[in-house]
Design a protein around this nucleic acid. Structure first.
Length: 115
DNA sequence: GGTGTGACCAGCT
DNA sequence: AAGCTGGCCACAC
């Protein structure tokens, strides 16, 4: 496979593009990103993309992406289990029981990015 | 190169 | 009401 012959942007690339545009102090969900990219059922891949970006050392704010309940399901994939929560708290969020308080209030819909 | 699997989600039983 | 299943895409073995 030759990279230069493939003009299509992979699903992962789109995920990175969206996630990197999440504003400071806001969060979104895996499903919202997947739905925005046209594949509502690809939400699992979003999380996987985060995993890859983490290992690749890309500058992607993966801590701003949680599941639809506002729960920090991916915290174990950061260096330390408490790192994700700390990062969110630094952005002004409050975490209780691995869940973002007032999640809907700070939720950032990728569709809003288009406006 | 087939198969399994993963930081999810919604629908069905 | 709570558990199981299918689906999606990329990647490791």
């Amino acid at each position: 496979m030759d990279y230069s012959t493939d003009d299509r942007i992979s699903f992962f690339e789109k995920v990175y593009a969206v996630v990197s545009q999440i504003p400071f102090g806001r969060v979104t969900s895996y499903g919202a990103i997947a739905a925005f990219l046209g594949s509502r059922q690809s939400s699992r891949m979003v999380g996987w993309a985060m995993n890859q970006s983490n290992r690749s050392g890309l500058n992607v704010p993966a801590h701003r992406v949680v599941n639809r309940n506002g729960q920090l399901t991916g915290k174990n994939h950061f260096g330390h289990p408490d790192l994700m929560q700390k990062l969110l708290e630094q952005e002004g969020h409050r975490i209780e029981n691995d869940t973002i308080v007032n999640f809907e209030g700070v939720f950032w819909d990728p569709a809003q990015w288009l406006l």
